[in-house]
């Protein structure tokens, strides 16, 4: 049988794999550069772990949004609503089961937080389904309308939270065994921050495995690049859209619970307040890129923490400065997603 391999593979050497390591190096390089500036190793460790913990929580909230944008081309400015609803839904478990929260038992503490997370993800996932169906679906492809209607959706969600939970702040108690810190040498590593790092890494690894090792994950990645071709291969991209929107909303709900426990106080605006940060992260990472989103979240949080320690006034604009710097270097973000 005749083949065209002989002619098409004239450039017979294997194409060089373009593994872009530079963005991966940013986080460790940034951390190491800060060590001499901070001067104290224990302080550096504490700041770095705190930054990584915050970064993980921001990643949980941002990862869904970046996939929603990448796959569906939807600018969801209402994403913060799922963060707020997730955090408030957690109170439905954490407040009535206060005994479990206050118990000096890691098993009871983990159980009650796990239950709160499950409920929050379930509720925000279902809310995401309704949000996509009612609010997003009529405005596919219309970016300006998407911005307006999703911001409107966020305002409605905040007001509904006021109606259901009231306008007052709600204190959210951190479970007993999650409090305190591990003291290693002179460095204090807060337990909850380490838990947040663990949960964030679990989410990242799970997303990585799903996106790289499953057919659904490959379809999502393919859909981010060329949704029309995915349809032409026989798959209903609309179902993928809905699934990703629900998953992204549920992840925001998870982030909301973690963020709420971190802040220990809830207001309806908790999601709205974090929305700007989430958008900065996904822009830095490259819209649609989960890996970029992860690195972006770490960078934003670390820079905020280091700047807060070294130059508190600069910390107020550190996120924006970081975004501008990254975009001057890579205008499409750290890991731009190929589009058709």
């Amino acid at each position: 049988m005749t083949t065209i391999s002989s002619v098409a593979a004239q450039d017979s050497a294997l194409p060089r794999l373009r593994v872009d390591l530079l963005p991966l190096l940013l986080v460790p390089v940034l951390a190491l550069l800060m060590l001499p500036l901070i001067g104290s190793f224990p302080t550096w460790v504490t700041l770095t772990v705190a930054g990584l913990a915050m970064g993980m929580m921001v990643f949980m909230m941002a990862s869904g949004l970046t996939l929603i944008f990448g796959l569906m081309d939807v600018l969801n400015f209402g994403h913060g609503a799922f963060v707020s609803v997730g955090a408030f839904t957690a109170t439905l478990v954490l407040l009535p089961m206060k005994g479990w929260v206050e118990a000096d038992s890691i098993l009871m503490n983990l159980s009650v937080v796990g239950l709160a997370i499950l409920l929050a993800m379930l509720v925000t996932g279902i809310l995401g389904w309704a949000f996509e169906r009612i609010i997003i679906r009529p405005v596919y492809g219309l970016h300006l309308k998407q911005i307006l209607i999703t911001m409107g959706g966020m305002i409605v969600a905040e007001q509904l939270i006021h109606v259901i939970w009231g306008a007052e702040q709600i204190p959210l108690q951190l479970p007993t065994t999650f409090r305190g810190a591990f003291i290693i040498g002179d460095a204090a590593l807060e337990k909850y921050r380490l838990i947040a790092v663990g949960v964030g890494l679990t989410v990242f690894v799970t997303m990585f495995l799903v996106l790289n090792r499953t057919k659904v994950g490959l379809l999502i990645r393919a859909g981010v690049e060329n949704g029309e071709m995915v349809e032409a291969l026989g798959y209903r991209i609309r179902r993928l859209f809905v699934g990703v929107f629900m998953a992204g909303s549920a992840l925001a709900g998870l982030g909301g619970v973690m963020w709420g426990l971190y802040k220990e106080t809830l207001t309806a605006a908790i999601g709205g307040e974090i929305t700007v940060l989430v958008f900065i992260v996904i822009i830095i990472g490259g819209l649609g890129s989960v890996g970029g989103c992860f690195i972006g979240a770490m960078l934003v949080a670390l820079v905020a923490n280091y700047a807060g320690f070294l130059a508190p006034k600069v910390a107020l604009v550190s996120d924006i400065l970081l975004m501008v710097t990254v975009l001057l270097w890579r205008p499409q973000g750290l890991y731009p997603v190929a589009k058709r």
């Binding site: 391999s5 294997l14 194409p15």
Partner: peptide, 10 residues
């Protein structure tokens, strides 16, 4: 691969 042998390589 009989038609497009290069695919096996890549």
């Amino acid at each position: 691969f009989g038609f497009f042998g290069a695919l096996k390589k890549f």
